[in-house]
Design a protein around this nucleic acid. Sequence first.
DNA 1: TATAGACTGTCGTTACAACGACATTGTAAT
DNA 2: ATTACAATGTCGTTGTAACGACAGTCTATA
Lengths: 229, 229
Amino acid sequence: MEHFKPVLISSSWFSSLPEYLQNELLGKVRLKHFKAGQQLHAKGEDGVGFYGICEGRLRVTTIGVDGSEMLLALLGPGTWFGEISMFDNLPRTHDNFCETDSTIAVIPKNAFNELLKKFPELYPYFATLLCARVRSAFQFIDASTGLSLKHQLVKRLLMLTTSYGQHVPENSAITLTLSQESLAQMINSCRQTVNRLLGELQQEGLVLLHYGKITIPNPDKLFHDYRFR
Amino acid sequence: MEHFKPVLISSSWFSSLPEYLQNELLGKVRLKHFKAGQQLHAKGEDGVGFYGICEGRLRVTTIGVDGSEMLLALLGPGTWFGEISMFDNLPRTHDNFCETDSTIAVIPKNAFNELLKKFPELYPYFATLLCARVRSAFQFIDASTGLSLKHQLVKRLLMLTTSYGQHVPENSAITLTLSQESLAQMINSCRQTVNRLLGELQQEGLVLLHYGKITIPNPDKLFHDYRFR
DNA sequence: TATAGACTGTCGTTACAACGACATTGTAAT
DNA sequence: ATTACAATGTCGTTGTAACGACAGTCTATA
């Protein structure tokens, strides 16, 4: 457990908590191990806890009416999530799978509620976290609608570099490990189209394509060349 | 002011507050009047207060990179909004216009913060409100991506019947006042396509089209005919 | 009741993305 | 080294929605 502490406190949200609250939260953690492909929880299930990722990678998805899987996010080590069902007692909003073997820190719902009761000063921090969720959802909406497919693709790449490439020196190259197929699922497009668009971006010198990986040599340049409001 | 109290407490969220907290909030309200077309605030501005609609109708929009306006929601009397910038001190997420002459209840930011300080028991209620925002944003995302245009249209119609038609006896007809053009902006489509799709829905007996209005004789039937998960 | 402006209904034409098909290349395991 | 599988690169075909154009209809206002 001590082993994972540096990871669990690494996100900007968690590290914004005063140290004693960090420790109270960490004190309630139980570690759970999952195999690649295993499901953490399904959309519609009751929420049983608040989660932090120690190691591994998670796929957050939903299934459309047509049965196709849509990939909403990839979560990496240090990410905390699952607080929504803790606060409104409603079912989970998404399906959640382990892409790789993973170790997850779980704060069970009961323990979570007791902490909130005992330390109501936690509320403002969670309010901030919830606000961040709303804002990133709005960003997602802006990206999904009213943007050309190419702009959507670029925006999603940029999202992945920040949310997931995390502790990265500001201006350096980032290599994302994901297939063009996954990327296509994220913008609700098809592999072939994504392949063509990535080819164009490579022509423009903004990305480098490898087998199962995409390198963004200069995220800032990518951002500025495809300006968003 | 007393005149608008019944409207301001009518939403399910506000009425979930204990009466003394309702009164504390209402005690800080200042009424402001706006003309049709006037802007309440722009995306990117600092948030100056928490709002409740007394009368009138608001358009929540964003501008895409291509300059086209996207309509995200229509807010009617009884709706409270604008809390996000209160909690994270970041800029407003959207543009906000009055569609008609409107009266808005404003709780200024300072007063809002003082209330939170004095009555920290408000936090759980606002946490619930924020959760509702996240959930409706997720619903929006599900609707925007991975659904056929027709399904998107139906889902948006259903959203409008609930969020906006508000105090409606469960199973009765609802008439929405909005142009096909506005509807098109909401699903990022064009007027002509929306017109065709609405025509099909009318054939199926699920909607009735009028000049500047759309009647949904049986929202439940519409919902069930276009099942969503 | 006449008129302007907003909204609706319905054409083609055109652009673009989804899809199926297939060859090629990278990777990991035996 | 061989093989199996996963991911990529690139066709052509097809379906569908955006767009421009224009006629018809409703509503408010003078």
